[in-house]
Design a protein around this nucleic acid. Structure first.
Lengths: 172, 172
DNA sequence: GCATATTGTTGACCTTGACAACAATCGTCA
DNA sequence: TGACGATTGTTGTCAAGGTCAACAATATGC
């Protein structure tokens, strides 16, 4: 309907390129006709990293959706569980997220009684973060599901390629 | 200041873990004291993909910031430039973004006179996308800058690892 | 004791992604 | 032919995240 092209009525007919029925909106990017050239994109790591990120996160979210744990929440729960008494600034720094963002993440986890913010006796500014018992048991289930997700990933890629990617991406 | 912990005053003193001065908020994740355990996160590809994505996109954005071209805009310009007469649905599908999102991306690129939406003579619903001459010249500069970014990436990773990553991530 | 830095917090703004709805158009098939 | 379903571009809305600035409480260093 072209409601916004108030500009010109130039007819441009391009010969070789027509109406290929794309159905790779989902995750099937290895679809039918190639036809459309990625050109320079094909040499950019960033482009493929982004696509991989979307795929991996999508699978992770679907896998943990029964316990309502997002990737960000999972990372908070795991690191908090493994490092008792961590401060929010430390946690934010190791996860690579902003302090401000972590505050709101913790709000929701605290509302669900999964984490506690205890006052630090040594430093009045800090909170000592801990998992509640509910938090620990949910984390256990989350880890089990996440392991299934990771196994599926390893199967998709092949074990050696999976391990290789893990090692290479650690460079960042 | 713990304004929100209206809950308890339990003092919890954890011995081994204290106030390490983190300075890896930026991109230095290979920082000083390890101290904080990633635990299960250390085996998850998704975690490292996300960190890599942030790093790579950050470098890309900084590199192209002089010409004000975001990663998404770059991908639109590249694919549009390489496939004249593409429809928006086709473009969205190959880039893996929503039609709705592409509409707003194109709005801004059209406002900057970089792309044109021409009516398709064969199908009244479709737009045939084309770069303007300004779009083509900006794309040329963008490609040059993006190549510098990619070169920096290859140097950081080593050529063989860079190539390997490119190949492995294509699986998604 | 005072200046400066850090910590947790809130508020505002912007970008993305995900959906739903809609008008215009096309294709198909009775 | 005409009616029905599908596709295309579009808009709106909502939630999730990232960024940035401000602020009070607290700690540290001189």
């Amino acid at each position: 309907m072209a409601k916004s092209s108030v500009k010109s009525n130039i007819r441009s007919r391009i010969p070789g390129k027509q109406a290929l029925p794309y159905r790779n909106t989902q995750a099937t990017c290895r679809s039918a006709r190639p036809a459309i050239a990625l050109d320079a994109l094909d040499a950019h790591l960033g482009y493929f990293i982004r696509r991989a990120q979307i795929w991996v996160f999508g699978d992770f979210i679907r896998t943990l959706e029964s316990i309502d744990v997002s990737p960000a929440q999972y990372s908070v729960l795991v690191v908090t569980g493994a490092n008792r008494g961590l401060s929010q600034a430390e946690l934010a720094a190791t996860l690579g997220i902003e302090r401000a963002r972590l505050v709101r993440l913790l709000h929701r986890l605290e509302d669900r009684s999964l984490v506690q913010r205890l006052p630090s006796s040594a430093d009045g500014r800090r909170h000592a973060l801990r998992l509640t018992s509910q938090g620990r048991s949910l984390l256990a289930r989350a880890k089990a599901l996440a392991a299934r997700h990771e196994k599926r990933l390893a199967e998709k890629l092949g074990d050696e390629r999976h391990k290789m990617l893990l090692a290479a991406l650690r460079e960042f």
